[in-house]
Amino acid sequence: MRQVEGWRRPLGLAGVVALAGLGVFAVLALGAALGLWAAGFEGAVAREHLSPGPGAWLGTDALGRDLLARTIQGARVSLAVGGGAALGLVAIGGVLGAFAGLRGGWIDRLLAGLCDALAAIPPVVTLLGAALLLRPGLATAIAAIALTQWHGVFRSVRAEAQRMRSADHDRAARAMGAGTWHRIRWHLLPRLRPLLVTSLVLCFVYAVKVEAVLAYFGASAQTLPSWGRLLAETGSELARGIWWPTAAASVPLALLVLCAQVLADRLGEGEPRG
């Protein structure tokens, strides 16, 4: 019951602020996707390397493009990869973990082995390799993260499912002939909900950070500007005193991750973490 209470507990001031911050990012990205604002991110609006001021609030980049528009468009990429990959990760890891934990036997052993094998390869190798094998892009980044990085969720869900197997209510359900899917839906899922919500947010954080690294190496979205690519393009200009492109990319990236991280902390407080 303790976990259910934890789920109902209010988020606190920090949690609410973090949630609102995420909401602002979501609105910015949605509006940019619908073309409401930040539409002119591709053409030059002023001379190159214009410092922040009226006209171009965040200045312009090396090609004279408006950095404010490019930064807002970048939110689209980060949120799409973060959200999509987090949903995929939790779905794949959750279903496989629940199945392995509840079934046991050779399925469990096979899936656990697969999970160990995937976890042994450094994520960057898998993800850059995926960008080479498929075409680099937004969908590739989401699919590659979701399909290869589910081992963390898998392990925690599997452990919880194994714990449930020895519980009385599950033994009763099995005795009444409940199938694995029924047990997952009606017994395991309610029990796992707080864990899944927290790991959804944590996976979001992970995916956003990974996307920044991928974009830095040009293996993420190709047409849309993204914060990681902006950092790659502008990191070397810092030494020449042109600080605003780097700031325009790194401040929103850090803020987005910070909001999600604080939210995950508030959601996961008091839970045993492994």
Binding site: A212, V213, L231, G235, L238, S250, L253, A254, L255, Q261
Partner: peptide
């Protein structure tokens, strides 16, 4: 919260 890219750059 700082992505590794930010820390390094």
């Amino acid at each position: 919260s700082c992505s590794s890219v930010i820390v390094v750059v």
